[in-house]
Write a protein that binds this DNA or RNA. Structure first.
Lengths: 214, 214
DNA sequence: ATTAGTTCTAGTCAGTTTGACTATAACTAT
DNA sequence: ATAGTTATAGTCAAACTGACTAGAACTAAT
C-alpha cells in the first residue's frame, strides 16, 4: 500500500495517489488491486514487501512500515489467504519514475472504484493510519524531497487531512519541531516572495523492525 | 501477550503481570515463553488468538488487539516462523481464575528473565504499545472491574507508566472524559474517606477487526 | 469524645499551547 | 509606480497542564 503525492488534474495542488495493479487472472480478473506477492522462505517481512513492490511497480519507498495482518476467512473466494500488509511513502521524484503501463496505474486515494478482495478496506485503514500517525509523528516529510518550503509541508497535511490549515499557525508548529532544519537557500522562480527552504533531519518510525536496526 | 493487574508482593500496589508457559520441548526446552499456537484453516486471526489463549491458560480477555507480525528469519533455530502476535488485557477477576500450574505461571512484566525465541523483544514492544496507547485511548479500564474508584484508575496508570501522578490533576483529566460515568455508590470498608465509584461506558479500539463488527 | 492521620475532592494560579486574526516584508505582473 | 500574492512575524484570548492549597470525610489512636 503505497502513498505518493501528485498534482491534482484540476487545481494542480498536491493530492494523495496510490499505485494499483490490474488482476490478470481469477479471482477478480480485470479488477484493480494492491501490489503484493508471496513471502519467500529466505526473506524478512519488510524485505518481501520491498521486493514485491519493486517487482510490480519499480518503486523504492523512503518509508516502509507494517500496517496490519489481514486474515479473515473469506478474503479470497478460492483459498484462505493471510496478508501481512505494509504501507509506504515515496518521494515525488521516485513516484515519477514508477513503471506505468496497461496493468499498473496511479489512482487518487479518495477516488477509487471497487477493488479486488478486501483491498478497499485495507486502503481505508491505511488512510486512517496515515492521518493518525501524521498528527503525532514526523512522517509527512517522506512524501517530499530533500528540500522543501513550509508551504509545501502544509500542502501535504492539507492533502492528507483534507482540510485547510492556517498558514501562520502551521508555520509556528513546524518550526517548533527540532527535526526541521532551516537552510540558507530560498526557492526562486515563484510568482511571489521566495520562501525559505527547509530540511528534514529525523529518522523513520518505531516499528519493531526499525527500532533496533540502525 | 496478556496483561493483567496483580498486587505486588511487597507494596501491595497493583503492578503489571503476564502469564507465561514453559517450553516442554525443543527448541528452548525449559525456558518460559509467551502462550501461542498454530492458526487453523477455519478460524480468523483474533479467534485463533483467543482459542490459543484459552487452551493454554484458560483466560478470556476483555480486550484483544493485534500487536504486530514478527517474521525475522532467525526467530526459531529450527524453522522459519511468522508469528502474528495479539495482545490482551484481562480484568482482575478473570486473571484470578487462570489455570496456574507447573508449566503456566504469572510473572511481573518488569522482571522477566530470558525468554524463548524473540519473546523478550515482543514483550518490550507490547509494553511500549500499552504505554503509548493508554495516553490517547481509554483502555486502562479493561484492566479493572466494572466499578472502580478514580484512585484505582490512577494506580493503573502509575503501574503502567511507572511513575507517580498527581491525584488531583489526574482526577480532573479522567472526569473530563465522557466515557467515565459517575455512580451513586461509594467504596466502603477502606480506612479513610470512602471514594465514589465510577463506571466505564466506552467500547474497544479501532482495530480493523473491531471497527466494522459491532 | 477528641485528636491525629489519611485519602478524597474541589479549587487556584502561573506557564504553555492552540486557534483566530492582524500586519509587515518581499517578490512578480501590470 | 502600483496592485496582487505569498511569506513571515506577532498579538490576543481561550483551553489545557502541572504544581500547589485547602477543606471534607472517614478510621485509628488517645
Amino acid at each position: 500500500m503505497i502513498f505518493a503525492l501528485r498534482p491534482s488534474e484540476r487545481s494542480g495542488r498536491p493530492t494523495l495517489w496510490i499505485p494499483l495493479v490490474r488482476r490478470i487472472r481469477e479471482p477478480f480478473k480485470g479488477l484493480w488491486a494492491l501490489p503484493g506477492g508471496p513471502l519467500t522462505h529466505a526473506e524478512s517481512l519488510p524485505d518481501a514487501a520491498s521486493r514485491n513492490l519493486q517487482e510490480t511497480t519499480g518503486l523504492a519507498p523512503s518509508y516502509l512500515e507494517q500496517l496490519y495482518a489481514f486474515g479473515g476467512l473469506h478474503r479470497s473466494p478460492t483459498q484462505r489467504v493471510v496478508s501481512i500488509v505494509y504501507w509506504a511513502l515515496v518521494q515525488p521524484t521516485e513516484a515519477a519514475l514508477a513503471d506505468e503501463s496497461e496493468n499498473v496505474r496511479w489512482f487518487r486515494a479518495d477516488r477509487l472504484g471497487d477493488l479486488a478482495f478486501d483491498h478497499n478496506a485495507i486502503v481505508d485503514y491505511a488512510l486512517w493510519r496515515l492521518r493518525n500517525k501524521m498528527a503525532y509523528e514526523s512522517i509527512a516529510y517522506h512524501l517530499l524531497g530533500e528540500y522543501f518550503t513550509l508551504a509545501q509541508v502544509r500542502e501535504v497535511y492539507e492533502a492528507v487531512l483534507d482540510r485547510e490549515l492556517d498558514p501562520a499557525n502551521f508555520r509556528r508548529q513546524v518550526k517548533a519541531t527540532p527535526e526541521i532544519e532551516e537552510t540558507e537557500q530560498y526557492l526562486q522562480g515563484g510568482k511571489h516572495r521566495p520562501p525559505r527552504l527547509y530540511r528534514f533531519t529525523g529518522r523513520p518510525g518505531l516499528d519493531p523492525d526499525n527500532r533496533s536496526t540502525p
